[in-house]
Design a binder for these strands. Structure first.
Lengths: 108, 108
DNA sequence: AAACAATATCGTAATATTGCAATATTATAA
DNA sequence: TTATAATATTGCAATATTACGATATTGTTT
């Protein structure tokens, strides 16, 4: 064994896990923060901003895209990446709901 | 190679990544949702609730604990686990800030 | 067309994660 | 004290992730 048993869990649980997993690497957090900082989509200079080789960054971008956290569209020679608000909203409402449930809790 | 180059990123980036990574598995999401559902700390029956063997669940609990997402205290024979609100709050404010930044963005 | 730039893909080595059987630990119950 | 119950740890096989050099792809520029 060794593979995650996704079939034993609900679609909703797997979806949150996939998004969280994609955020579970500091390089990918750094990519997101850079996208926020530059405040626009043209992102051809991510490679110069991060201490990783170009293929590695390309791979991280792919994972963020697969998880729906960023979206990319081809714009001539460069590729325009930006954050997909919908996915961030999923996280926002998920964790907010946890906080709200906890506030009603008899837990420690 | 193969290991994550944490030293190249900020402490804040690594912290978010560690928390997100711990949430990046459906079994651990299921554990959290179960903790929320029972609405209390005594959690000796997680093993009966999840389709995984006891050592596997124990390992997932350990990872959630290491990431600060749950806290556990020994209570006689059983161990009392519950969600650590502080860590959920870190996520809430992190993703909320992203949403707020995006709303001011000239991005697509 | 040829050179160049930006990005993606392939291949692969190093490392990490997942899952579980077997076993250990520790507290309660008999 | 000897079971019994709950949880943790160990060890290991299967699989996934991370990182990057080499190379491919594709659009732009000359």
């Amino acid at each position: 064994m060794g593979a995650t048993k996704t079939e034993h869990f609900t679609d909703a649980q797997n979806q949150i896990a996939i998004i969280a997993k994609a955020l579970g690497h500091p390089a990918r957090i750094a990519i997101i923060e850079y996208l926020l900082k530059v405040n626009e989509c043209i992102c051809g200079d991510i490679v110069n901003e991060l201490p990783l080789a170009q293929p590695t960054i390309s791979q991280h971008l792919k994972e963020l895209k697969n998880a729906g956290i960023i979206k990319g569209s081809i714009s001539g020679n460069t590729i325009c990446y930006c954050i997909d608000e919908k996915t961030i909203d999923i996280l926002n409402s998920y964790f907010l709901k946890i906080t709200q449930t906890l506030s009603k809790s008899k837990c420690c």
